[in-house]
Design a protein around this nucleic acid. Structure first.
Length: 915
RNA sequence: GGUCGCUUAGCUCAGCUGGUAGAGCGCCACGUUCACAUCGUGGAUGUCGCAGGUUCGAGUCCUGCAGCGACCACCA
């Protein structure tokens, strides 16, 4: 059966079928009873749910490969292993997609109305949503698909309601009018996390605000005391200077603030300022927030459009004037000339008007960070608005503690501090969104003024009995439902068996970008509603970047489609490539312009596994092999060596997986398999596997080879599941040791410590260096591959030479040595000293044409010397050294040094040949 | 502005608690005898960012400097 394996691995012909086999075998599914009744230890990962409309990209490839590696490993360890898949409804993102579709038809969401719009989104999501989960199957993700969840499932709606209402009842959710981040394009409030700041070079404009006459005397005194912000216009009016990066908001100024201790402006507090353009009087107030040392020490206060100003207003009683409409145009609160202007047009218009009035004092270059909507990139506007908030401080406490006492760990550990810093400075969370797609806020308003917050939709007012209830039009931030994911997927608030069995989970694998959006909030919710953290370890992997270090993205066109990679090179190749780059704390870089080069390592390795397996299967045949215990006495040194290496590989892999050092695991196993099993063991053991070989030795070799391959395939399976499973299924069984049905549930290698054999390792290591030195000498003296040689060995450990005689076949195979003789050897030849002290002599008389080799070398030396003489002559020429460009002289010197070295090496070689 | 990180072979990066510099890809040469040319064998290439310090010994620890980056906050 193994004979029909093709010499080249064709992933397409094995991967899909193998995956189907796993699914049909039910290997991905684990029932709660496995934990609750059978007492198996669970291992649970909940997937970071991709956006329901997303298409698989390399970021998902990375994220899910890592999860699958961990899942497969734990499953093999015998844990009741569960990976829960699902998707996120992704409020803004999904709504934007459908709105764009509507726009293509010339429609706006208002044209179709809320109900129809939501229907349409559902249609879209039902039709195209979830394809990403199918795409995950192509990369081998062993999720329990029977448990697939969607954040808008009825079950999860119930969880959201329960959490909202409970938090409300506990006073942790409240509604109020505050400055929030507003996206004028998405027309919704955003959380602080959703407003991404970006360093932007901009301008700081200095504006002059005329003072009321009653303040002129104080102004003059302030000016005389050195207050540069105070001045006098041509018409004699006294003014003060304030600065802003958003001049259009000056129309909404309702005051000017100074620091209460600022002596310069003491007499001005309480005075009035004539707000230009708006032609309103506004007062000067004192507030601690103002930094007297920054700028003029005077701040214009725009309470409806700035968070700090809003707080100043709250303390000083300044009015609130909202000068912007939701889509960021100037509102009716401003003079007619500006009404309806877009905020940026208004900026120009305001500046022009101020300039005309002689009230623009000047400008400065000013780089500051400007918040942008994380979904559409529009500049976010701080805006006064009535929204729902979660009071975070009380929730953060246990979640912070969990990090500090190690209940929850972070890898890389660096993120622990970032997490803690954020938790310590946590701010309330604005959770209402002015969208239609999402979890509707479970709050109803009655005309009598009653506010009803309820788990079930109410039919009548609890106060007046009226049935005319209006539900709050807003929906919740997407992350409000995502944060419940670790328990909502198990049916919470029902106390289900799943919940009992699988909560808390174990590992959270995700990207650092959503540490605050999601991870932190899951931990808080876990503590608040379940009394414990939803997972013990947070593994934060890097970002997938292109060769120039740019994040892969659709808009940059620098992405690599994982499905294309699977199609061309196989899922194993992609997984191995990803995992081998997965060093802790580093990003993954891939060249989108040379996809083949990027995945070559993985593809080649998968093919190597395939061929090594193919060869081993052919050599071993179908007959069952003995157990190792049975043939222990017949084991050759190389058998004991390779088993010892297997034991080390297993230990190293387990250790690496436990610490999320996936890159080390991949690299270690790669070397073990390719560098030890393929390059050495298979080559050494070839002759013993031949039909003509001595039977006891052959049986020992067969048993060892099957054991080694069995273990190697198990160790590699989490990373490259397909090719390993394909081969493993074909391994002959060993007597009295029935294999599990499929590699996916074969036991993870452990307890191989008994195979460690330092003597065997030292002994085989000496043999390896002998082979390596022999090969090197052959190459160096041009002894062709077809030419058999005799080598002489003497010195070194006593049994070294004796051991070699048993390996004549291996020496023949590895180094084309047909005889080993003891003693130092005589005549013309090459020699080398091995690390163990033994001396190796390779006679060359009669092997190569020594005279010809000598004259070839001599000729080469002559040629080098000729070149060297030329270069030296040039360097000796002062004119050349003085006049030629430095670069040229430097190169000549380097060249000379190089030639000298080459020539002296060759002379040495010639001398040895002569000896 | 605060915090943290990075700087090692042409490229992408490993190097845990200090002990003779590593991998993959790429490059050069040779090789198809029976697992694999998606292969084998051999080879070349590094003042481990710069400057000091601790040490018998520093890529690894300390200090300073330079360059790059991340996260957070934000003063108008």
């Amino acid at each position: 059966m193994s004979q029909d394996l093709p010499p080249r691995l064709d992933p397409r012909s094995i991967e899909p079928a193998r995956y189907r086999g796993w699914q049909e075998g039910g290997y991905f599914h684990v029932p709660a009873s496995a934990v609750l009744e059978d007492g198996r230890e669970p291992y649970v990962i909940v997937i970071p749910p991709p956006n329901v409309t997303a298409a698989l990209h390399m970021g998902h490839g990375l994220n899910n490969t890592v999860q699958d590696v961990l899942i497969r490993w734990r499953r093999m360890q015998g844990r009741a292993t569960l990976w829960v898949p699902g998707t996120d409804h992704a409020g803004i993102a999904t709504q934007n997609v459908v709105e764009r579709q509507l726009a293509a038809e010339g429609l706006h969401r208002d044209d179709v109305g809320r109900e129809k719009f939501v229907e349409r989104v559902w249609g879209f999501v039902t039709e195209t949503g979830g394809t990403i989960l199918d795409q995950l199957k192509a990369i081998g993700a062993s999720c329990d698909w029977e448990r697939t969840r969607f954040t808008l499932d009825d079950e999860l709606r119930r969880a959201v309601r329960e959490v909202f209402v409970t938090l409300y009842e506990q006073g942790l959710i409240y509604r109020g009018e505050y400055i929030i981040n507003w996206c004028p394009r998405c027309l919704t409030a955003l959380s602080n996390e959703e407003a991404e700041s970006e360093e932007t070079p901009g301008t700081l404009w200095h504006l002059r605000y005329p003072l009321g006459e009653e303040a002129w005397a104080a102004a003059e005194a302030a000016r005389d005391a050195g207050a540069e912000a105070i001045g006098r216009l041509d018409d004699g009016t006294w003014y003060l200077t304030v600065s802003t990066t958003r001049p259009e908001t000056m129309l909404g100024d309702t005051g000017v603030a100074v620091h209460p201790g600022d002596e310069r402006y003491e007499g001005l507090v309480g005075a009035s300022v004539h707000l230009p353009l708006a032609r309103r009087p506004i007062p000067i107030v004192a507030d601690h927030h103002v930094d007297p040392d920054f700028g003029s020490g005077m701040v214009k206060v725009t309470p409806a459009h700035d968070k700090n100003d809003f707080e100043i207003a709250g303390r000083t009683g300044l009015e609130l004037v909202d000068v912007l409409t939701p889509d960021a145009r100037m509102s009716d609160a401003v003079p007619e000339a500006f009404r309806g202007l877009d905020r940026f047009e208004a900026r120009e218009a305001v500046l022009e008007a101020l300039e005309d009035a002689g009230l623009l004092a000047g400008t400065d270059e000013h780089t500051h960070s400007v918040p942008h909507c994380y979904r559409c990139g529009t500049v976010v506007e701080p805006r006064l608005s009535e929204q729902w908030f979660v009071s975070m401080k009380p929730l953060a406490e246990p979640a912070l503690q969990a990090s500090k006492d190690g209940t929850v760990t972070f890898t890389p550990v660096h993120w622990q501090r970032v997490y803690e810093h954020w938790m310590e400075n946590i701010q309330d969370w604005c959770i209402s969104r002015q969208l239609w797609w999402g979890h509707r806020i479970p709050v109803w308003y009655c005309e009598c003024g009653q506010v009803i917050v309820a788990r079930e939709d109410p039919t009548a007012c609890t106060e007046c009995g009226s049935e005319a209830l209006e539900q709050d039009p807003d929906v919740l931030d997407t992350w409000f439902s995502s944060q419940l994911w670790p328990f909502s997927v198990f049916g919470w608030p029902e106390e289900t068996d799943d919940l009992k069995a699988f909560y808390p989970g174990h590992t959270m694998v995700t990207a650092p970008e959503i540490l605050f959006f999601w991870v932190a909030r899951m931990i808080m919710m876990g503590y608040h509603f379940r009394g414990e953290a939803p997972f013990a370890d947070v593994y934060l992997h890097g970002t997938v970047r292109d060769i120039r270090g740019r994040k892969m993205s659709k808009s940059l066109g620098n992405g690599i489609d994982p499905l294309r990679v699977v199609e061309e090179f196989g899922a194993d190749a992609m997984r191995f490539t990803i995992v081998s780059q997965c060093a802790i704390g580093t990003d993954i870089s891939m060249d989108h312009e040379d996809v083949e080069a990027t995945f070559a390592a993985g593809r080649n390795f998968a093919n190597k596994i395939w061929n090594a397996g193919r060869f081993a299967l052919m050599s071993v045949g179908d007959e069952p092999v003995r157990s190792l215990d049975e043939i222990r006495g017949d084991l050759a040194a190389e058998d004991r060596w390779v088993l010892s290496r297997v034991a080390r590989a297993a230990e190293q892999a387990t250790n690496g997986l436990e610490r999320f050092r996936l890159h080390e695991v991949a690299e270690g196993l790669y070397h073990h398999f390719w560098g030890e099993i393929c390059d050495w063991y298979l080559e050494v053991v070839k002759s013993r596997l031949a039909d003509a070989a001595e039977p006891a030795s052959r049986e020992a070799a067969r048993a060892t080879l099957v054991t080694v391959l069995d273990h190697a395939l198990r160790l590699l399976h989490p990373i490259v599941p397909f090719v390993t499973a394909e081969l493993w299924a074909r391994l002959p069984s060993s007597d009295g040791d029935e294999r599990a049905g499929d590699l996916i549930v074969a036991p993870w290698p452990s307890g191989t410590d008994g195979w460690l054999d330092e003597d065997a390792e030292a002994d085989f290591g000496a043999f390896q260096s002998l082979v390596a030195e022999t090969r090197r000498l052959r190459k160096e003296y041009g002894v062709g591959e077809g030419q058999r040689v005799t080598i002489h060995v003497h010195g070194g450990p006593d049994d070294f030479l004796a051991g070699l005689s048993k390996r004549s076949a291996a020496l023949e195979q590895l180094a084309r040595v047909d005889a080993v003789e003891s003693g130092s050897g005589v005549g013309v030849g090459a020699n080398a000293v091995l690390p163990n002290g033994a001396e190796l002599f390779l006679p060359l008389e009669g092997v190569i044409d020594v005279e010809r080799e000598r004259s070839r070398m001599a000729a080469e030396i002559e040629k080098l010397e000729g070149l060297l003489t030329g270069v030296r002559a040039r360097l000796a020429n002062e004119q050349f050294v003085n006049n030629a460009p430095d670069e040229v002289v430097r190169k000549a010197r380097e060249n000379a040094a190089q030639l000298e070295e080459q020539s002296s090496k060759l002379r040495e070689k010639l001398a040895r040949l002569a000896a």
